[in-house]
Design a protein around this nucleic acid. Structure first.
Lengths: 352, 352
DNA sequence: AGCGTTATTGTTAGCGTTCACAGAGTGCCC
DNA sequence: GGGCACTCTGTGAACGCTAACAATAACGCT
């Protein structure tokens, strides 16, 4: 029983070949499902593989095939519901296609951080990357870089010739704003996201356009940063406005608010609650994203649902199609996939 | 101008060597920061690298060094705040140490899915993995598997000889329950998580033990599944109990509820609101996790904060220490890192 | 029988690194 | 001026796999 207890190395193809009594090439053929292998030898080889617990060495394979079967992702706020859902859908889709996904997360967007992230991924030989960093500067910085592999953006806007997937944020904003106007509100206020985020901008644009088309006054948008706290602050300001305008004109000028995401909407709700404003009685509120919690807010939040998982899947499909077409960095016919959001009406916007 | 426009292959070390007028080995030395290289040649090599845009081929490197510098993660509910925060902290820590992280996500736990996930990671030659699947069965299934690389669990319980990191869930539960008892409640009800989750069990245990030690009645725990909806259902049941007990005995038997996570607590809050029960006036509520939204619930939620990012970092440290000690699968002195949670008191539990 | 064709297997040569070793040059000492 | 230590550089051989080609056996057909 010379059971070698030392840190014996993983078996190689040659080991399998020897056990099975064939050449290493035949083993390779069996593994590659090559048709021209006699059934009996195939069985023999499989048995040897089983017996030795053989696993193909991915590095050696990658070295010779020049394919690492690895994709990279750069993500930005990965603890938020949206980004993490996308990441999830993306990883699953990639795995189904036989790829591995390596993610690098950015604490905050800076050009340097983005470049380092991409560098890090390149070092590991990814075949392509998905960039989920929805800052305006990120996308233009990306366009500058000439990378030796395909890049796909998520929510990267339409202005640059980089293929990408996005949800039609503007449409979503139009849906909510239109919904609030239809409910009889004279106008709709807006708590926007950070101005350098493309999503924030698109939502702002959709909101403004809808108001203008309806001939409604466009009130100055308030500024948030996606966090509940910033929504809370904006909510306090709006609540103050309601109070003073009611006192001055006898009628409040804020009766409906479209908040650029659900988390901030939560903050606004709290501020209103503390100010004694009833929702939707005195002010109607709507959010964006439809996080799982939104249905259970006080009151349940009207919002716009985005199919994040679908975005992740689409980004992988797009990346793989680029990969197969051999299309490296440059792509003039930058494909874009747009996914439609859906309005979810709940009590926060219903007339009592 | 013989600019080769074809899909010219990435430059190799030999190319760099030729341009710099040295041998490929010298290039390798420069890249490895070997001390015995003359300053002038080092500069020459670096210049050639710059000029050619050379990047070391990670597959070739991995092949010869037998190190892929890649770690794997198996995660379970990656869209929740907790898991995604851990993933984030973990990835960052790994990157700081020069490792790449590849994550595989499980839609739902099954033994098969777990094994496939691990298989998938093994295929890519990870040097070790972190398993973030806090099911009882997952950990025992893991213990069965004899893997050729180190494994670290997150929230994997203490019963098995696998190194792991966890937050002291039981302590957290004790803190909340004790806090509620100290506020004068005769007993504390509990909405538990799914019974096959270790975290749910530990929180249940901590709650029960605290009640027993205080000589309080231990009411039957309600069952949830972490989602707001399940919390909502449990909340409806509890609200019903308040109503009938108040009617029958003149005094309600539910005055305080410890909900096993914040999302379910949100559901309970909604149910109570709909039933006309005031929080904390008639019933005090506390959750667990301290998700960013918790502070803005109606009312702001008392909860237990877990430092998820720290858990992720600790898991990487533990995995790397295992890796360096050469400790593969077997590890009798299974190290465990325990992180202490912190009670965060907000108005949902404050006596009016 | 002889030939072409196909099925099955083996042989050899890389893929781009790192490692082990050898070699050349320099300085120092007895 | 030979030997020794040290610095710097190059040569050749792996690492474990796949691709290309060669070789052999088996088969059908004229």
């Amino acid at each position: 029983m010379s059971q070698n207890t030392g840190p014996r190395r993983a078996p190689t193809m040659a080991d399998v070949a020897q056990v099975a009594g064939v050449s290493h090439q035949t083993v390779s053929r069996v593994l590659a499902n090559h048709p021209n292998v006699r059934e009996s030898t195939r069985a023999e080889v499989l048995r040897a593989i089983e017996q030795l617990g053989y696993r193909r060495n991915s590095s050696a394979r990658a070295l010779v095939t020049r394919r690492t079967l690895t994709l990279g992702v750069v993500a930005c706020n990965p603890t938020l519901f949206g980004p993490s859902s996308m990441l999830f859908g993306l990883e699953e889709a990639a795995r189904d296609e036989g790829y591995m996904v390596s993610a690098v997360t950015l604490r905050r967007y800076t050009q340097k951080a983005l470049e380092e992230a991409i560098d890090h991924l390149s070092d590991w030989g990814v075949e392509g990357i998905v960039v989920m960093v929805p800052h305006r500067q990120a996308v233009s910085a990306l366009a500058q870089l000439r990378l030796p592999f395909p890049v796909v953006t998520v929510e990267g806007g339409h202005s640059l010739p980089i293929p990408g997937v996005s949800v039609d944020q503007e449409l979503g904003a139009r849906l909510v704003t239109g919904h609030l106007l239809a409910a009889g509100h004279e106008t709709v206020w807006h708590v926007a996201g950070p101005p350098d985020w493309l999503e924030a901008e698109a939502r702002l644009d959709g909101w403004r356009a809808t108001l203008e088309e309806a001939g409604a006054v466009v009130p100055p948008p308030l500024q948030g940063d996606w966090t509940p706290l910033s929504g809370y602050r904006a909510g306090q300001e709006l609540a103050g406005r309601v109070a003073t305008s009611s006192a001055r004109r006898g009628t409040p000028d804020v009766t409906a608010v479209f908040v650029a995401n659900d988390q901030m909407a939560l903050g606004v709700l709290r501020a209103f609650r503390e100010a004694g404003l009833s929702v939707p009685g005195q002010v109607a509120i709507a959010g964006f994203d439809d996080i799982p919690e939104a249905e259970f807010f006080a009151p349940p939040l009207t919002t716009v649902r985005q199919d994040f998982a679908a975005v992740g899947q689409a980004s992988i499909r797009l990346l793989l199609s680029r990969l197969e077409s051999g299309g490296a960095g440059t792509a003039d016919d930058a494909e874009r996939v747009v996914i439609e959001p859906r309005l979810i009406v709940r009590s926060s916007s219903k007339p009592t």
